[in-house]
Design a protein around this nucleic acid. Structure first.
Length: 571
RNA sequence: CGAGGUGUAGCGCAGUUUGGUAGCGCGCUUGGUUCGGGACCAAGAGGCCAUGGGUUCAAAUCCCGUCACCUCGACCA
């Protein structure tokens, strides 16, 4: 490729709206351009990176007997009615009509398509297990795209679906996929990533893992135990529940608290008492039912983990509006709440056995002091619905937990039979009985992988691609292209490198050295080769690595083999 | 969906308070001089000031609406 012909605008200044490094640099380096919110065009170098990542994914999927297929982007409503997701998924699925008024959807995931594809072709347990996958564009109408390619609406994704005769077989395959994922992320040059237990959300199913790149710009919060290696997404993380109870239980007392509403105000009003001696009430509505309010009580120093709450009440929740309910916002308390209509209560495990607690009095301007859960309340069951906090004790080994942000770069799910059952896929087992195969599913977003590697590897000069996915291996930088000898030698080297299978972009522009070096650094090409009057005088070229780990003058005759050696050592 | 912010040349920005011929830097074109870490000189090209309505002799600027984008929050296979 000739640099003079490469389409893509490189700029000195960062775009004003890019907040994270990978986003700003990929735009500055001319790798991509925004078309609409969360929708991007990729320039040639970004597309080359995407293709290299896709090929690595493909190789690893094929290595675990994956069969590459291609499912449609546009699917009929009926297929999604079968699984029940046409109505259960919200606005993030784009729905539209064709010319005949038929309802269609844009594919945001392809469980339905995979089952629809496989169910007639597969009839016997002897055909199991198998895995089918595709690498294809998805569209999810995210409420809020952000961070360049980190969170987008349109994106390319590898999604894989495996089918098994029983749970044992799924688990065996699941861990093969887990290992394949580990190899994929290592091969594309990602360093600081881990797999954590996760919530399986709308996919249904039980066990799932997310592969996470550890970085401060990540949107997910992870709970890690440095001691025993416990790793979990915040959504499903647990810690040892600490229960505090005073030896002496004081009598109940109603106290005037004026307009103190939240925990901070109440504790302050009551003489800077500790937050863990208060009961916090957090209200939600069940999705689609604004009549009923779910009131969660957690200890004042903790917060509600909505993902855990959803599991407890087995329903989707949204933050509640209290207008029209009999609840007194800011003064909601557990004592006597059963008398308030249309309220469901959930108590967090942190409150079990607690005493001398402050809670709302369920009337304006008053709170109750010295509530004892054993003495004054009759709570049938306490649930774990609190968020894990930094320093909480690990539920495995008891040591303090750490919180860390991460970007989700891939996920694997044990789906179970949700889709094979709802969509009527059966095979005959050894006994001749029809059963629903058990499914696993496995996803990796290609664009997000690009951005994640960029985020991890970029420095103050620009991007810095690992050799395995770099758009080109070599940036051939000819200085003084007006010098006919330089031009001739550079063009010959360009041709020789290409003939030797080296991917090279040739900067043939008649620009100053600094200008070219900056573009080379910004674009993040791993090997820079300089050919100039100075180097030619000694029959040399100058070879250096973007990461600074190698720099030397190499004789022109040996240059191709030396460069190949550098590349091969890094792929 | 809630709160805040921003829309002026390809990119980064000034101009808006106080209405009066649309500016700067980078980039781009042409010519010349330079040439190893974003060179210099000269001459150019390029803007319906997001958009629709008002107000006014006159609107980038004031008023009302709409849209887009960004940030925080909510949602998120």
């Amino acid at each position: 490729m000739l640099m003079s012909k490469l389409v893509g605008e490189r700029t000195k200044t960062s775009p004003a709206d890019a907040v994270i490094k990978s986003h700003a640099l990929m735009i500055r380096a001319g790798y991509m351009k925004l078309v609409s919110n969360g929708i991007w065009s990729l320039a040639m170098p970004a597309q080359r990176i995407a293709q290299k990542i896709e090929n690595i994914i493909r190789e690893e999927m094929n290595a675990i007997e994956g069969q590459e297929c291609m499912f449609p982007v546009v699917m009929p409503r009926e297929m999604w009615e079968e699984s029940g997701r046409y109505s259960s998924i919200g606005d993030e699925m784009v729905r539209f009509k064709d010319r005949n008024g038929r309802d269609l959807v844009l594919g945001m995931t392809h469980e339905e398509a995979a089952v629809q594809f496989a169910r007639d072709a597969v009839n016997s347990y002897q055909q199991l297990p198998f895995m089918i996958y595709q690498i294809q564009t998805k569209f999810r109408d995210e409420g809020r795209a952000r961070g360049g390619l980190i969170r987008v609406r349109e994106f390319k994704m590898k999604d894989a679906y495996s089918f098994h005769i029983n749970q044992d077989d799924l688990e065996k395959y699941y861990y093969r996929a887990y290992d394949a994922y580990d190899r994929i992320f290592k091969r594309i040059g990602m360093k600081n990533f881990i797999a954590v237990q996760s919530d399986s959300g709308m996919m249904g199913g039980k066990i799932s893992h997310e592969f996470m790149l550890l970085t401060d710009v990540g949107e997910d919060t992870l709970v890690l135990c440095p001691e025993c290696g416990y790793k979990s997404n915040m959504e499903v993380a647990t810690s040892v529940v600490e229960n505090y109870a005073d030896d002496e239980e004081l009598p109940l007392e109603e106290v005037y608290t004026a307009d103190a509403k939240d925990i901070a105000e109440v504790t302050k009003y009551l003489g800077d008492m500790p937050a863990y001696k208060t009961v916090k009430a957090v209200c939600y509505n069940v999705k689609g039912d604004s009549e009923t309010t779910v009131v969660c009580f957690v200890r004042g120093d903790l917060e509600v983990n909505e993902a855990k709450l959803k599991k407890v009440i087995r329903k989707e929740v949204v933050p509640a509006g209290l207008e029209g309910s009999a609840l007194v916002a800011g003064n909601i308390g557990c004592l006597g709440i059963e008398k308030i209509p249309n309220v469901i209560t959930v108590y967090d495990a942190s409150l079990k056995g607690a005493n001398n607690m402050v809670t709302g009095a369920n009337k304006e301007e008053y709170h109750i002091k010295n509530l004892s859960f054993n003495r004054d309340m009759n709570v049938k069951e306490f649930y774990d619905i609190a968020k894990v906090v930094e320093g909480a004790r690990c539920s495995v080994c008891g040591k303090p937990l750490k919180l860390q942000n991460g970007i989700e770069i891939g996920n694997i799910f044990q789906l179970g039979t949700k889709y094979t059952e709802s969509m009527g896929m059966t095979v005959l087992n050894q006994e001749g009985k029809a059963i629903n195969p058990i499914m696993g599913c496995y996803g990796i977003g290609v664009g997000r992988a690009i951005a994640s590697v960029a985020e991890e590897s970029a420095d103050e000069k620009g991007l810095n691609w690992p050799m395995a996915i770099a758009p080109w291996h070599v940036y051939l930088c000819a200085l003084r292209t007006d010098d006919p000898i330089v031009k001739e030698k550079a063009e010959k080297l360009y041709a020789d490198l290409q003939a030797a299978g080296v991917e090279v972009i040739y900067d043939d522009r008649n620009a100053s050295a600094g200008f070219k070096f900056s573009d080379c650094d910004l674009m993040g090409i791993p090997i820079r080769v300089v050919i100039s009057p100075r180097s030619i005088a000694n029959d040399n070229i100058e070879v250096q690595l973007r990461d600074g780990s190698y720099k030397d003058n190499v004789n022109l005759d040996e240059s191709v083999s030396k460069i190949k050696e550098l590349i091969n050592a890094r792929i």
